[in-house]
Amino acid sequence: MTAPTINGTRYPQPIEDLLPAARGLDLPEGQRFPSRNRLMREFRIGAPKAGELLALLKAEPTAPPADSTAPDPADAPTVPEPAPPVEPDPTPAPEITTAEPDAEATPVSRPDTPTPPLTPAPVRSAVVWPVVLLALPAFVAIWSGWVGLGGLTGFGVVHPLPGIWDSFSINSAITLPIGVETYGAYALYVWLSGRVPQRARRFAKWSAIASLLVGALGQVAYHLLEAAGVTAAPWWITTAVACLPVAVLGMGAALAHLVRTHD
């Protein structure tokens, strides 16, 4: 006889659910209780649980079979019934192994089993050395274009330390590529880094775009004037180029102040 199970599975069952099934087991004639080994085989439980189930069966009161010819129990003297001796079962207890669930059985989730954390795959940073190859020819073209436009708009060799170092001279046209393009690259970095306050990021975004557009217009203006053989730029181009160092100074100071403040 196969004992009933819970939900049709073979997982361990409570003693309370096994007790009614244990009462209904077919026993040989003259045997009042099933042996511990049979309980273990029938219900696929361990020795401690089978012993506990057997003890509960023996603790339940049992009524003697009714006999019409027997004398009235009230007339007979009450004699305590001796407890039946517990005979050791010579059959060795089978080794209990955890039965694997059937393929058709519904898997039982175990919420107490910790789920191992997922290890994220290492992320490799993108290489930046190709930027150097891109920047070298751009640097040569931008530098020559700004210096040439500076020469057409009045920038040239000056002596910044008169009376102190008269022989020291510098071409002021180099201030255009250094100021405009350097600020554009720095503002672009601040904008894309995302590590500055929102006001500083917004200012860096629009000033970087404006700086790159001015740089592109400066290159266009120089090449058009050079191709046309112009030796002196028109007054409106000269005015715009002359204001660039002052504009770069103001935007650089403002951006440096914003990146150190909070919203």
Results as ranks from 00 to 15, higher is better:
Gly163Val: 02
Glu181Met: 12
Val214Asn: 09
His159Trp: 08
Gly179Tyr: 00
Phe168Lys: 07
Ile164Trp: 10
Leu152Lys: 04
Ile209Asn: 07
Leu149Tyr: 09
Gly145Lys: 05
Gly156Tyr: 08
Gly148Ser: 14
Phe168Glu: 08
Arg195Val: 02
Ala208Leu: 04
Ser167Thr: 11
Gly218Lys: 03
Ser169Val: 08
Leu176Ser: 02
Arg201Asp: 07
Ser207Ile: 00
Trp165Ile: 06
Gly215Glu: 04
Trp206Phe: 14
Gly215Ala: 15
Val190Ala: 08
Ser172Gln: 09
Leu213Trp: 14
Ala187Met: 02
His159Thr: 15
Leu152Thr: 02
Gly184Lys: 00
Gly151Phe: 00
Ala221Val: 08
Gly151Arg: 12
Leu224Tyr: 13
Ser193Cys: 06
Ser167Trp: 10
Pro177Val: 00
Leu192Asp: 04
Ala187Gly: 03
Ser207Trp: 01
Val190Gln: 06
Leu212Val: 15
Leu176Met: 05
Arg199Val: 11
Gly156Cys: 10
Phe203Thr: 11
Gly156Asp: 13
Gly184Leu: 00
His159Tyr: 12
Gly184Val: 00
Ile209Thr: 12
Val220Trp: 13
Ser207His: 04
Lys205Gly: 13
Phe203Pro: 02
Ile174Thr: 07
Gly215Met: 06
Glu181Lys: 01
Trp191Ala: 14
Ser211Gln: 11
Trp146Thr: 02
Arg201Cys: 07
Gly184Trp: 00
Asn171Gly: 07
Lys205Asn: 14
Gly179Cys: 03
Gln219Glu: 14
Ile178Asp: 05
Thr175Met: 11
Tyr186Cys: 07
Lys205Met: 13
Lys205Arg: 15
Gln198Lys: 14
Ala204Phe: 11
Asp166Phe: 02
Leu149Pro: 09
Gly156Gln: 10
Ser207Lys: 01
Gly218Val: 05
Gln219Asp: 08
Gln198Ile: 08
Ile209Ser: 10
Val196Glu: 13
Asn171Phe: 04
Ala216Pro: 09
Leu188Asp: 15
Leu149Val: 06
Arg202Met: 10
Val157Ile: 14
Pro160Phe: 08
Gly194Arg: 04
Thr153Val: 09
Val157Asp: 12
Ala200Leu: 07
Ala221Arg: 06
Ile170Ser: 04
Ile164Pro: 02
Ser211Glu: 11
Gly148Met: 05
Ile174Met: 05
Gly145Leu: 03
Leu188Pro: 01
Arg201Asn: 11
Pro162Ser: 07
Ala200Lys: 03
Asn171Pro: 07
Trp165Gln: 13
Val190Gly: 01
Ala221His: 04
Pro177Thr: 01
Tyr189Leu: 12
Gly150Pro: 07
Arg195Leu: 10
Ala173Arg: 00
Ser167Tyr: 08
